[in-house]
Nucleic acid binder design. Structure first.
Length: 587
DNA sequence: CGGACGTCGCATATTG
DNA sequence: CAACATGCGA
DNA sequence: GTCCG
């Protein structure tokens, strides 16, 4: 513990301060966090916070490591004799915390700064100190700690798949699950082989109350069985390996045999608005996040993979000054601000936003009043419901929606004369909800009719109808986070030539869509000239056995996957349950 | 240095 | 009007 | 912005 060290470089604290809002004035802060928090500490102090060596009567906040356990907290608080409040933190354990002191993660500091005001402390409670639900059934929230730690906490954040930046090193939320998977800690009764209903499939198949489906908690080792049309089975830490494998492959950041315990640098911010560079920047950020050692010297920065010369300069600047000149520049950049706002209108991409800007649009009201811009239908809708669309939907509401749809669905099946194979019906919310997010920006419900009703024509009221043979692919497509989806496809494309060869001697990869998985051949020299645009459209040039684009050939036969586990197996990957299918979503 | 950086379907714009 | 190109979200 | 050929 010696949190009191100055940031490296000893840059005069306060120099950049001049006009910065003193966000933390009046705060008396105790830092329980570690070395790599030096910059955060420094910033908090620059902005008016007063650091204290230990909890005292006038302490307002304790900044904790995100993975702080109740036990650790208790240890650090030994010697505190003031008034306390008791918090039950699960497994019958409880901890006594000083009255009137807020316990928050470092995120509270870093997120409050750009907001220019203090964010609600409850939303940054370290999961280890989150009050445990009274009963398992009431675990509805705190599902994966998100709620307990902070419902949303980022409702109106820039990106919608929030909370991720802390992933790796900060086992909060769903990550906590992962970490427990990897390294079961004391109190968890991992010996139990109980089947844990961690996701909805089991609940509905068993005809149970949909309300209980939120239970993502439970013994770390989920042992899951086949239910309905889907498998959901996990055991041990393998899913994590798969996640890491895909992540490494996707980002090309093969950090030499790194799989160390949580220690890390601070998660960098992502920027939007970058068309082409974003991939490179994501990669650099990913490299930083994966890096498990504190960055203290410039030489340290040079060791991080994925950083090119430009990125290194920026990281080094942050290392030295605690901030980057680019941040101030970006904040002051009018055009950037306007574009960012315009991009928030659904249906608007960089092209439209830039065009409008060049035509003088500066605000949403400009956009509303202009008649010369020819908004698309989607953009009109997006503008009209701008505020509504920014609203997040609480998890409970998604659950309710899902329940209603499911009941109606099964009722309909019955009315249509669906038979006993109704067990092979799928009707569940997917997307971020399935991944355990405390709130969602939309409700995706995937319905797959049972084989006995495969002939049923529902096209007049459903736009997407999946044949039962395609449901595993649909699930895989809709259930995964975007980045996980990308990574999986990328892996299938280029990472499993061997497996593909077994299907077709000419194949060197697979192509996965939302309805099938087919072997493909892609010419090795794909990094070469390419024509204008891929042949997305209908049949063209190539005559026989599957069309192609850029020389890629689609081959036979398609891979038959009766369930999602097969997809993973064919790709040589350990099955990953839906709620673990993301890494670090910037999207 | 030049080119890729995932892939798809849909809606809309442009072109012939 | 059809064929193609672009923009967009997922 | 970075990697690859």
């Amino acid at each position: 513990m010696a949190p009191k060290r100055k940031a490296p470089g000893g840059v005069a604290a306060g120099s950049p301060a001049a006009k910065e809002p003193q966000v933390f004035s009046g705060c008396r802060l105790v830092f329980w966090a570690h070395r790599h928090m030096a910059v955060t500490q420094q910033r908090a102090k620059q902005l008016g916070g007063v650091q204290q060596p230990a909890v005292a009567a006038d302490t307002t906040h304790v900044i904790c490591p995100p993975n702080l356990t109740a036990q650790q907290a208790a240890d650090k608080l030994r010697g505190w004799s003031g008034p306390t409040r008791e918090v039950a933190v699960g497994q019958g354990a409880s901890v006594r915390l000083p009255e009137g002191v807020a316990f928050v993660t470092p995120d509270w500091v870093s997120r409050s700064i750009p907001k220019h005001h203090l964010l609600p402390e409850e939303q940054f409670l370290p999961p280890g100190l989150a009050p445990a639900p009274a009963s398992p059934a009431a675990a509805t929230q705190a599902a994966a700690g998100h709620d307990g730690a902070g419902t949303g906490g980022q409702q109106q954040q820039e990106q919608q798949e929030q909370q991720q930046p802390q992933q790796r090193e900060h086992p909060t939320g769903a990550d906590a699950e992962q970490h427990r998977d990897a390294a079961p800690a004391g109190p968890e009764p991992t010996s139990s082989t109980a089947t844990v209903p961690f996701s909805s499939q089991q609940m509905w198949a068993a005809g149970q109350d949909a309300q209980q489906q939120d239970v993502l908690q439970g013994p770390a080792f989920c042992r899951v069985e086949r239910r309905g049309s889907e498998f959901v089975a996990v055991q041990g830490a393998k899913p994590l390996q798969t996640v890491d494998k895909l992540r490494a492959y996707w980002f090309h950041t093969h950090t030499a045999g790194q799989e160390a315990p949580p220690t890390s640098p601070q998660p960098p911010k992502t920027s939007q608005l970058n068309g082409v560079c974003s991939h490179a920047i994501d990669k650099a950020v990913q490299g930083l996040i994966m890096w498990n050692e504190a960055l203290e010297s410039e030489e340290d920065v040079d060791k991080v993979p994925g950083l090119g010369p430009k990125s290194k300069v920026k990281v080094k600047e942050i290392l030295a000054k605690g901030t980057s000149s680019r941040i101030a520049a970006a904040a002051a950049d009018e055009q950037r601000k306007v574009l960012t706002t315009l991009l928030e209108v659904w249906g608007t991409g960089t092209a439209s936003a830039s065009r409008w800007y060049s035509l003088g649009v500066r605000t949403l009201d400009n956009l509303r009043s202009r008649t010369d811009l020819n908004l698309t239908e989607q953009q009109r809708v997006g503008l009209k419901y701008y505020d509504d669309l920014k609203q997040k939907i609480p998890r409970a509401e998604v659950a309710q929606t899902e329940k209603i749809v499911r009941e109606t669905c099964f009722e309909l099946i019955e009315r249509w004369g669906g038979t006993a194979d109704v067990e092979r019906t799928y009707c569940s919310a997917t997307g971020s909800y399935l991944r355990g997010k405390p709130q969602s920006s939309d409700v995706d419900i995937l319905i797959c009719l049972p084989p006995s009703l495969s002939h049923a024509d529902c096209h007049d009221f459903l736009t997407e109808v999946y044949a039962s043979s395609t449901t595993p692919f649909a699930l895989n497509y809709f259930g995964n986070s975007q980045s996980f989806c990308r990574a999986t496809r990328y892996w299938a494309n280029t990472g499993v030539a061997e497996a593909a060869r077994k299907y077709n001697a000419a194949a060197n990869g697979f192509k996965i869509s939302d309805r099938d998985m087919v072997p493909i051949y892609r010419p090795p020299a794909q990094r070469h000239h390419r024509r204008s645009r891929g042949g997305g459209g209908g049949s063209d040039s190539e005559g026989d056995a599957g069309a192609a684009d850029g020389g890629t050939t689609v081959l036979e036969p398609a891979v038959a996957c009766p369930d999602e586990t097969t997809i993973f197996r064919e790709l040589g990957l350990a099955y990953v349950p839906p709620h673990m299918r993301y890494f670090h979503d910037f999207f």
